[in-house]
Amino acid sequence: MATDPFNITSEARNTLLVVTTLIVAVTFQAAINPPAGVWQDDKYSPANCTADTTDNNCTRIARAGTSVLHHQSKLRYGIFIFVNSLAFSAATCTIYFLLLGSPFRTETLISIYCMNGAYIASVGAVQPQTKKTWAILIGAILAPYIFRVFASIRKRHKLAREQDVSQGPPVFQLAISIENRRPRTIQNQKN
């Protein structure tokens, strides 16, 4: 690998890659097979209704293939999908940054974004189609990347301030700059 922006050993990098890959696999599996499973058949109210029933009193309350947990408790499902998606996204973000100096950076980036897209599509197929669950899902997927961008900006800003402090306040920097521009002959005449 070219440069190591995190100054970690190769052994530590390999360990982190194994752990994050395991987290990605587990969270992806948990997302497509959520706790309590998914409905095997459409569920109607009243219970004696079916898809073939033309009675207007029948209401479909659950679609086949959607999360049972969401039907039982929207709050618990929301917490589960947020935390699971956040762990998945943080792990894929970590993998990307660990492979930053790799010669296959572009391919890695494409793979990670495609994996995030597949995760969103899979969860979208299992979760009920509500704006709230989509907002939770997209927010959790984007959060680690947004935090990384802000951390990078903050770090650059901190480094810039440290460099400015070593040179002094801007007023002193201007005075030093003016002093350095004076011709040496004038300074020598004063002596």
Rank of each mutant, 00 (worst) to 15 (best):
Q72H: 07
L99F: 00
T66N: 14
C49L: 01
Q127I: 00
P144L: 02
G37M: 09
S45T: 12
N116D: 12
C93A: 14
A36R: 14
S122M: 08
P34Y: 02
L69A: 03
A151T: 06
G139M: 03
A90Q: 06
A36N: 11
R63D: 12
A143G: 05
K155Q: 14
A125Y: 13
R63G: 05
W134R: 13
A31Y: 02
D41C: 03
A36D: 15
P128Y: 12
V24E: 09
A30T: 08
P128W: 08
G101L: 03
I32E: 08
I79T: 04
C93V: 00
L69H: 02
Y77T: 00
L100P: 03
A160C: 06
Y119W: 01
S102W: 00
S67F: 00
F82P: 01
G37Y: 08
M115W: 08
F147N: 11
N57H: 10
P46E: 09
Y119D: 10
I110C: 07
L69Y: 02
I138T: 05
F88W: 09
V38R: 14
E162P: 02
I146M: 09
F82W: 11
T133G: 00
A36Q: 15
A36W: 06
F88V: 01
H71D: 15
I138R: 03
N33K: 12
N33P: 04
E107T: 10
M115K: 06
A31H: 06
V123L: 14
F147H: 09
S45I: 03
D55V: 00
I110M: 08
P144H: 04
R63V: 09
S166Y: 03
P128R: 11
L99K: 15
V165R: 14
K155T: 07
Q40M: 05
F104T: 09
A31F: 01
W134Q: 12
H70W: 15
F97R: 15
T53V: 07
V165A: 13
P46V: 00
V68L: 06
C58R: 07
A135T: 13
L99V: 04
T94S: 15
W134P: 05
